[in-house]
Design a binder for these strands. Structure first.
Length: 464
RNA sequence: GGCCCCAUCGUCUAGCUCGGUUUAGGACGUUGCCCUCUCAAGGCAAAAACACGGGUUCAAAUCCCGUUGGGGCUACCA
């Protein structure tokens, strides 16, 4: 059997963390089995669906490296297909027209709730307000007793009692299918072999099975994954901070890190934490997906990202960081200097954005001096020492790490000061603060001209 | 409320399918130490969990039942 999976977002917002993980699981399962991965846009809710949102979801998918086979399919363009199936059910008496308006139903529902009663749609209401020209919805005629069995690859067999299930609407008065109907039809029509989705759809699955049985269609296999929760164990939402893929992209996360972190939320492979994309494709399986919900942990996510910041090729980091540098007005090219800056800063940054923030003094002379650092380290007694450093560095022909180190050694000998006593003030002079890569590395990257210039400026700041 | 799902360190998880090999392993975070020109990175170490109660069994984190807790669904939304 050909493995075909799908990701079916509704274009009513951004691609969020939970949706992204569902997409990743489906994509991985398809790729692992040499199958197809299909993207289906569930835009049957005309009021809430937007093109912009669809575009953004597609962009997020591309950014994550989740490629799909064949063109994305939009449910809004398939209404005729749904109608056909609905009519088939109608003609077979497995579905019927219902003229009760949503408003009338809302009222009945409210009444029942006020009496503390369980609300269930009753078939005899269907004809209320019936007239030849009145709009109607189509409902599936379901049995009153019996069970529906959901066979889940992750959770095993789950039974739902039919007395809990309404004659639910499959085709709305506006001619659009409801979610459950469109999904069932599409999954069949598109030859989906495995439906991997959040367990918030478990009850929907029972309804979809009812549709398949009424139509006598073959069913896909189902795998319901537990949801991703926020730190307070509530469903992940905006108030838990960033929840969309795009936000993480904008915050300086790498797509590999997002992929890696999310796939490990609910799935594992022994003790392994870091996976390349190829490894994931090779190792991913449904059996190792856990049943319990997982809590989204920003700290671990940050750690995964910092791992990729440290380990991705320098050229790749350079390419990604250049637009960010440009935004700040730092003219830069992918030259040796940028590569050196990245080499030093990647050990100290958890995100690309942080790396940019920490790199300003490499690209501009116009950086701020930290007030405390200035007061503590740029003091009058430093003037002769800075002069010695300037003197030794000026004489250097080969302005690289080791000669610079030697130059400092000479200053240490002559002043009888320890390196720390010299390096820290120099650091403040060159970077404006007390935290930076190793001082010899900083000096090498800055080059002779800028280093001397800044030491001179610092000397002036010392004499106040 | 009803129905459904879930339950190992604070968090992600290994182990559970096929009960003994477990003083329950790894990772993030936390704390301490080492390294050290600062900050990091790195190394080493520590604290930290089988929700509870019953069974079954010679033996249970592993199997069964219940309780509790958490989550989801309960629309002519998806």
């Amino acid at each position: 059997m050909k493995i075909v999976t799908r990701f079916a977002p509704s274009p009513t917002g951004v691609l969020h963390i939970g949706g992204a993980r569902t997409a990743i699981f489906n994509w991985l399962f398809a790729r692992n089995n040499g199958g197809n991965f299909i993207l289906r846009i569930e835009d049957t809710d005309q009021a809430r669906s937007t093109k912009e949102s669809e575009k953004e979801i597609l962009e997020s998918m591309k950014w994550l490296g989740l490629d799909w086979d064949s063109e994305p399919i939009r449910q809004s363009e398939r209404t005729e297909i749904y109608k056909e199936y609905a009519n088939k059910l109608l003609s077979e008496g497995k579905a019927y027209k219902c003229y009760v308006t949503p408003e009338q139903l809302q009222e009945k529902r409210k009444e029942a709730q006020e009496k503390g009663e369980y609300f269930k749609y009753k078939r005899e209401w269907a004809e209320i307000g019936a007239a030849p020209d009145k709009p109607f919805a189509i409902r599936l005629a379901t049995e009153d007793a019996g069970k529906v069995l959901v066979q889940d690859l992750i959770r095993g067999n789950i039974e739902f009692d039919l007395k809990e299930i309404d004659d639910f609407v499959i085709l709305r008065a506006d001619g659009f299918p409801t979610y459950n109907f469109a999904v069932a039809i599409d999954d069949f029509d598109m030859g989906i072999s495995h439906v991997i989705r959040g367990d918030d759809h478990l009850t929907n699955t029972s309804k979809q099975i009812l549709i398949y049985d009424a139509l006598d269609l073959g069913k896909p296999k189902f795998a319901h994954v537990s949801m991703i929760l926020g730190e307070d164990k509530a469903k992940l939402s905006k108030r838990h901070g960033a929840t969309s893929v795009i936000e993480y992209k904008n915050d300086g996360y790498l797509p590999e890190a997002v992929l890696n972190y999310l796939v490990r939320l609910g799935w594992s492979f022994g003790d392994q934490e870091i996976f390349t994309k190829d490894e994931l494709i090779e190792k991913f399986n449904l059996e190792s997906i856990g049943k319990s919900p997982s809590i989204f942990n920003p700290e671990k996510f940050l750690w995964v990202n910092s791992w990729y910041i440290k380990n991705r090729p320098t050229e790749e980091i350079a390419e990604k960081i250049m637009p960010l540098l440009k935004e700040r007005g730092y003219k830069t090219e992918p030259d040796i200097t940028l590569l050196k800056v990245i080499k030093e800063l990647r050990e100290r940054s958890e995100t690309l954005n942080e790396m940019v923030e920490k790199s300003s003094y490499f690209f501009t002379n116009d950086f701020e001096y930290d007030e405390n650092a200035k007061n503590k380290f740029l003091t009058e007694d430093m003037i002769p020492i800075f002069q010695k450093v300037i003197e030794k560095l000026t004489n250097l022909e080969n302005f690289t790490h080791d000669p610079i180190h030697n130059a400092f050694g000479k200053v240490m000998d002559e002043t009888e000061l320890k390196l720390g006593k010299i390096a820290q003030p120099v650091r403040v002079a060159l970077t404006g603060g007390t935290k930076s890569p190793g001082i010899f590395e900083v000096i090498e990257i800055l080059g002779k001209e800028k280093t001397i210039e800044r030491l001179n400026k610092a000397t002036r700041l010392c004499s106040r």
